[in-house]
C-alpha cells in the first residue's frame, strides 16, 4: 500500500473525537489507537512519539530541568522540518506553555521573569519579559485568552483555567487540522487531540475528592497513613500517554 492510501485507511479507521468537553470518555482506547498507529512508517512513528512527548504535559513531567524540556522541544521542532504545519503546531504549543508558565510564575510572586530564555520557548519571550507587569504580557490584542487566564489564576479557578488552556490548544489544532485530511500531519493532529480528550476524560470529581480525603487523613494521622493515592485511574500529568509507553525505547 502506498503512503497516501495507507494514510487514507488509517485516518478512516480512527473514530471521530467530537468537540472538546462534549464527551466523558475517549471513543478509542489507548490500546486500539496504538494498534492502528502500528501501520506508520518507523520514521513517522518516531516523529509522532517525540512530538507527543514534548507537547503533552505527561511527557514533560519526566524532565527534571526546564533546559531539558527546551532542548527536547528544539530538537522536535528541527526534526519536523519536512512537516511545516506540525512544526508550527509544536512551536505554538510550546509558546502557549511558556505563557502559562509565565502566568504561574507571576501569580507565585515572582517580580521579574529572570532569565526567560532559560525556561521559555519561542517568539514571545522578549514580549513577556518587557511586559511582565501587564496582565496579558502585551499579547492581549491577538491572544485575548491570556488576560482571561490571568484573571482565572488570580481567582484560583483552576478548572476554568484548565478548560481555557485546553480550549486554546484545541483551537490551534483545529486551525491546522482544516488543511490536512489524509496525511501524516492529519494523523499527528488526531493523536494530539486524542491526548487532550483522553486527559480530560481522566479528570474525575469523585476520585479527586477521595484523594483529598486520603491526603487530609494522612496529614492528620501520620501513623495510619495508607498508600496516599488509591486512585482507580492514573494520575493526570504523570506518566507518558499509554500509546507510547512500550515504544519509547
Amino acid at each position: 500500500m502506498s503512503n497516501s492510501h495507507q494514510y487514507i485507511a488509517l485516518i478512516c479507521s480512527l473514530p471521530h473525537l467530537g468537540l472538546l468537553f462534549s464527551r466523558a470518555d475517549v471513543p478509542i482506547s489507548a490500546f486500539r489507537l496504538k494498534q492502528r498507529l502500528a501501520v506508520l512508517a518507523p520514521d513517522h512513528a518516531r516523529l509522532l512519539r517525540d512530538m507527543i512527548a514534548v507537547t503533552d504535559w505527561a511527557g514533560v513531567a519526566r524532565c527534571n530541568e526546564d533546559s531539558e524540556v527546551l532542548a527536547r522541544a528544539n530538537k522536535v521542532v528541527a526534526d519536523l522540518a519536512d512537516y511545516p504545519d506540525l512544526q508550527h503546531l509544536a512551536g505554538t504549543r510550546m509558546e502557549t506553555r511558556t505563557i502559562i508558565a509565565a502566568l504561574r510564575r507571576r501569580r507565585d510572586g515572582q517580580e521579574t521573569p529572570g532569565d526567560i530564555r532559560g525556561w521559555g520557548f519561542g517568539r514571545w519571550c522578549t514580549q513577556i519579559s518587557n511586559n511582565w507587569s501587564d496582565p496579558g504580557f502585551g499579547l492581549s490584542h491577538f491572544m485575548p485568552w491570556v488576560p482571561e487566564a490571568h484573571q482565572l489564576m488570580a481567582a484560583g479557578d483552576h478548572i476554568a483555567m484548565e478548560r481555557l488552556a485546553l480550549t486554546e490548544v484545541f483551537r490551534q489544532l483545529d486551525h491546522y487540522g482544516h488543511t490536512h485530511q489524509f496525511d501524516f500531519e492529519a494523523v499527528g493532529i488526531y493523536v494530539l487531540r486524542w491526548v487532550i480528550v483522553e486527559r480530560w476524560s481522566r479528570y474525575n470529581v469523585k476520585d479527586a475528592r477521595r484523594r483529598l480525603g486520603t491526603l487530609v487523613d494522612a496529614a492528620l494521622n501520620p501513623s495510619n497513613a495508607a498508600p496516599p493515592f488509591p486512585l482507580a485511574r492514573p494520575e493526570p500529568f504523570l506518566g507518558q500517554p499509554a500509546i507510547f509507553e512500550e515504544t519509547a525505547s
Binding site: H5, A9, C12, I28
Partner: peptide, 14 residues
C-alpha cells in the same frame, strides 16, 4: 477505486 477502497477498508475497522 484504490483511494476510495482504502477509505472503505479503514472505515470498516471503525
Amino acid at each position: 477505486c484504490a483511494l476510495a477502497g482504502s477509505a472503505a477498508i479503514g472505515a470498516m475497522l471503525d
